[in-house]
Structures are given as structure tokens and as C-alpha cells.
């Protein structure tokens, strides 16, 4: 891959993305349009995250990629390999050793620190899209801070089901201004978005949007006084490491429907197991 520039993208493209990142940081939660490039991987498979990572990486960085919390899912492996080849950066699976972490659908369990950058892959950056398919309309709604429709939708859930029936990509309000889609993370992860020490960058390639949360930004999950937001997860301990406070994947382990629950964050789970913690299904 030596025919390509450092981190694949040409310098002009990186400058364009970098400018968008800076505006994103200056206007937390606002979606900055950017001229997303066609990447050598399909739209919808992390092209936004990859472009943002390519624009922030330096040769000295240590890079980690997770998909569904895991380092070894195929698309995470594929993206990690892409940057090993095109940027020659060190990679790691250890959360605290990484300076840049690209993620799809999870925030690591271990709190991130000030030196770190978390890059999210975002499929549909517009939190209002499911209420209003037109970009021209949703842009207006954001400009007028017209978020009533969103509250109506959430409240309809409550009157129908007794609960807000949104369990992932749960909308948040940033610094009391922009309603933002946190990408399809489970709502269990929502409380980690606010007041995070690390910089959070969101890239949506196909939809051509970049947005950001600077560290220690106020992020509130939308809710109602009588129905406060509740972060939820499967009510089980991890079968491998015994953790009771981590987000769990459910696995079907036999053909009679036997199930077990395991941390979705593989690095977190392995570190706990190495430290001697043991769940009921561990060897």
C-alpha cells in the first residue's frame, strides 16, 4: 500500500475533514456536513469513522478498533488491518493503551482518560430522521430548536407501552442545545457520553456528517419527569468474568435454547479474567 499517502487519504481531504472536526468541537452536537470520500470499504461499514480516524491519527498513535465492544469481530479486524497497512500505526486491544479508539455500537466499559480519542462509526447521524425523512426539514428543526416532535414520539411510547421503546441510538441533548444521535450504542452506554475525559468524534460517511463532543460536555438523555431515563442491560452477571456492571451479549449455547451472558467488551472481560475473576460458565 506504499502508493497511498499516510493513513490513505490525500492531504487535501484530510484538511477538509480536520476543518469539519474543529467546527464540530466548537458546536457540540451539531452535524457538520463534509464531503465524504469514497473509501475502499463499503458505505455503512465504518467509512465515516475511518475518515475521521485517518484525519486524526499520527504515526505515534496506538490504535484500537472495536465492533460491538469486541476487538475480534470481522469488521473490526478489517479496519484495524487497514490502518496497520496504510498508517503503520501500532495497534492494541487494550483499552487503556490506545490513544485512538474507533468503535461501532459501544463505549468501552473502562472509563477513558484525557489523552484518548473515541471515534464512533455512525450510520444515520440525524436523530430526527425516523420522524422526518427530509434533510431539508430536519435541518430547519435543528436551527429552530424545534424538538417537540421527538418528545411527542417518546411520550407516545410511554402511553402505549408504559416505557420509552427506544433501547439503542437513544437521543441525547448536548449542552442544552442540539439533540444528537449517539450512534447505535445501547442506552446502557448513554450515561458515559457526558463528562467524558476523552474527546468523542462521530463520523457518518454515507450521510456526509461529522459531529463531536469535547471532553466534559453536558449530555443528557431525553426523558420526562415522570419517566426518567434508565440505562438498562440484561439482568445477569457475565458468565466468563462474573462482572455485574458490564453490558452483556446473549449467546445461545445449545439447541434447546440454553443461553449464557458474556461481556460485550472483550478487553474488559479478558482483563478481569486475568485478574482472577471467574463467572459461572468459565473454564
Amino acid at each position: 500500500m506504499t502508493d497511498y499517502n499516510f493513513a490513505y487519504l490525500d492531504e487535501q481531504t484530510k484538511r477538509m475533514i480536520r476543518r469539519a472536526i474543529l467546527k464540530g468541537l466548537a458546536i457540540p452536537g451539531y452535524q457538520v456536513p463534509f464531503a465524504s470520500r469514497e473509501m475502499p470499504m463499503p458505505y455503512g461499514w465504518g467509512t465515516g469513522g475511518v475518515q475521521v480516524s485517518a484525519a486524526v491519527l499520527t504515526p505515534e498513535d496506538t490504535f484500537k478498533v472495536i465492533d460491538q465492544g469486541a476487538d475480534d469481530t470481522t469488521n473490526a479486524v478489517s479496519i484495524r488491518t487497514f490502518f496497520e497497512r496504510t498508517a503503520g500505526v501500532e495497534t492494541t486491544t487494550t483499552t487503556c493503551d490506545a490513544s485512538v479508539i474507533q468503535t461501532r455500537h459501544r463505549i468501552p466499559e473502562e472509563p477513558l482518560s484525557e489523552g484518548q480519542i473515541l471515534v464512533y462509526q455512525v450510520p444515520i447521524p440525524e436523530p430526527l430522521r425516523f420522524l422526518e425523512p427530509r434533510e431539508s426539514e430536519t435541518r430547519k428543526m435543528h436551527s429552530l430548536e424545534e424538538y417537540g416532535l421527538m418528545h411527542v414520539k417518546l411520550y407516545e411510547d410511554i402511553s402505549r407501552h408504559g416505557h420509552i421503546a427506544t433501547s439503542y441510538a437513544y437521543p441525547v441533548k448536548v449542552e442544552g442545545r442540539y439533540v444528537m444521535d449517539p450512534s447505535p450504542i445501547p442506552k446502557f452506554d448513554n450515561p458515559k457520553l457526558g463528562d467524558m475525559a476523552a474527546i468523542q468524534l462521530f463520523g457518518a460517511g454515507r450521510e456526509q456528517r461529522i459531529y463531536a463532543l469535547p471532553p466534559y460536555t453536558q449530555v443528557v438523555s431525553l426523558d420526562f419527569e415522570d419517566h426518567p431515563f434508565e440505562a438498562s442491560k440484561a439482568d445477569h452477571p457475565c458468565g466468563m468474568c462474573g462482572a455485574i456492571d458490564s453490558y452483556l451479549d446473549e449467546l445461545i449455547i445449545d439447541d434447546t435454547g440454553g443461553r449464557m451472558f458474556v461481556c460485550s467488551d472483550t478487553d474488559f472481560c479478558e482483563a478481569r479474567q486475568l485478574a482472577g475473576h471467574k463467572g459461572k460458565d468459565a473454564a
Binding site: P42, G69, R106, P123, Y168, S264
Partner: peptide, 18 residues
């Protein structure tokens, strides 16, 4: 096609929350 086919990718986490 990219977005259509991306639903082949793992969605364990969001599915679990559903």
C-alpha cells in the same frame, strides 16, 4: 448497496438491547 448490506454486520449489541 453499502448501507443495505451493512445489516449483515454484527448487531449483537443493539439486538440485545431490543
Amino acid at each position: 448497496t453499502g448501507f443495505l448490506e451493512h445489516i449483515k454486520l454484527p448487531h449483537y449489541v443493539d439486538f440485545q438491547s431490543e
